[in-house]
Computed example of a mutant assay.
Amino acid sequence: MSSDLKFYTNPMSRGRIVRWMLEEVGVPYETIVVEYGDAMKAPDFLRINPMGKVPAIRHKSSIVTECAAICAYLADIFPNAGLAPPIDRRAAYYRWFFFAAGPVEAATMNKTLGVVPADEQRRMVGYDRLETVLDTLETAVKDTPYLAGSDFSAVDVYAGSQIGWGLQFGTLEKRQAFIDYWDRLSSRPAKVRADELDDALVPN
């Protein structure tokens, strides 16, 4: 394995998103599994991510954390993979990356935690309410085959993973547009390989 790209993860984490992205990129990387508990809070790992969580990557001398940032970074640093649109056609790409990392993440997590903003708080939380987020996301995945247009890109890895997990664990309504979109993504060879690699790391 190349020492230029190190992937810090745990198979029971959002690291699965980054694993999928790495498999789409198709370059050699070294996997470093970080166990929950003391290992994630140890000084050596806190130098990688002071938050004490995975995933993270080290590419040469650069460290990147946060799933969306890692996916975007990998798409840019390995352009031959074709996972980012040309710079003059990135409006939708950026829009849905930040929408997924912001309103979608916040609204679905709040639902999981049982947090429902009162009507007078809706303007303060940034996403209005979960239904508004889902309606907006539904429009995005209905309008084009992929979020950035006609071609699959890194934003589909990130936002698509959230949709896939939401459908699996019940944090998203099972709207037909979400199901159809996830069906387009979940059978990709890189996604299948990524799942096999992570599943093999899950303790029995």
Score class of each variant (00 low, 15 high):
residue 6 K to S: 08
residue 7 F to Y: 11
residue 13 S to C: 04
residue 13 S to I: 03
residue 14 R to A: 11
residue 16 R to C: 04
residue 16 R to Q: 11
residue 16 R to Y: 04
residue 16 R to S: 05
residue 19 R to D: 08
residue 20 W to D: 02
residue 20 W to P: 01
residue 21 M to I: 01
residue 22 L to G: 01
residue 23 E to C: 09
residue 23 E to W: 06
residue 23 E to S: 07
residue 26 G to Q: 04
residue 27 V to W: 06
residue 27 V to Q: 13
residue 30 E to M: 01
residue 31 T to E: 10
residue 33 V to Q: 12
residue 33 V to E: 13
residue 35 E to D: 14
residue 36 Y to T: 09
residue 38 D to A: 12
residue 40 M to V: 08
residue 44 D to Q: 11
residue 44 D to L: 03
residue 45 F to I: 05
residue 46 L to M: 13
residue 46 L to E: 07
residue 47 R to M: 07
residue 50 P to I: 03
residue 52 G to I: 00
residue 52 G to V: 04
residue 52 G to T: 04
residue 52 G to P: 08
residue 54 V to R: 09
residue 55 P to I: 02
residue 56 A to Q: 04
residue 56 A to G: 12
residue 57 I to V: 09
residue 58 R to K: 15
residue 59 H to E: 04
residue 60 K to Y: 02
residue 61 S to I: 09
residue 61 S to N: 14
residue 64 V to R: 03
residue 67 C to T: 15
residue 68 A to G: 15
residue 69 A to Y: 10
residue 70 I to S: 07
residue 71 C to W: 04
residue 77 I to V: 15
residue 77 I to N: 01
residue 78 F to E: 02
residue 80 N to A: 15
residue 80 N to W: 00
residue 82 G to F: 10
residue 82 G to R: 02
residue 84 A to Y: 00
residue 86 P to D: 01
residue 86 P to I: 02
residue 89 R to D: 06
residue 90 R to P: 07
residue 91 A to N: 09
residue 93 Y to K: 05
residue 93 Y to T: 03
residue 97 F to H: 09
residue 102 G to P: 04
residue 102 G to F: 03
residue 103 P to F: 06
residue 107 A to I: 05
residue 108 T to L: 06
residue 108 T to C: 12
residue 110 N to Q: 12
residue 110 N to Y: 12
residue 111 K to D: 08
residue 113 L to P: 01
residue 114 G to I: 09
residue 116 V to Y: 14
residue 116 V to H: 13
residue 118 A to K: 14
residue 119 D to A: 14
residue 121 Q to E: 15
residue 125 V to P: 05
residue 127 Y to C: 13
residue 129 R to E: 15
residue 130 L to T: 04
residue 131 E to N: 11
residue 131 E to A: 15
residue 132 T to W: 07
residue 137 L to F: 13
residue 139 T to C: 08
residue 142 K to W: 02
residue 143 D to R: 14
residue 145 P to Q: 11
residue 145 P to Y: 05
residue 145 P to D: 11
residue 146 Y to N: 10
residue 146 Y to W: 13
residue 148 A to E: 04
residue 153 S to W: 08
residue 153 S to V: 09
residue 153 S to K: 08
residue 154 A to Y: 00
residue 154 A to M: 03
residue 156 D to H: 06
residue 157 V to R: 00
residue 160 G to K: 01
residue 161 S to T: 07
residue 162 Q to C: 11
residue 163 I to R: 00
residue 163 I to Q: 00
residue 164 G to F: 00
residue 165 W to E: 12
residue 166 G to C: 10
residue 166 G to Q: 13
residue 171 T to Y: 14
residue 172 L to C: 05
residue 176 Q to K: 13
residue 178 F to N: 13
residue 180 D to Q: 10
residue 180 D to W: 05
residue 185 L to K: 12
residue 187 S to I: 06
residue 189 P to A: 05
residue 195 D to P: 00
residue 196 E to A: 11
residue 198 D to M: 06
residue 200 A to S: 14
residue 200 A to L: 00
residue 200 A to K: 08
residue 203 P to E: 14
residue 204 N to W: 05
residue 204 N to H: 10
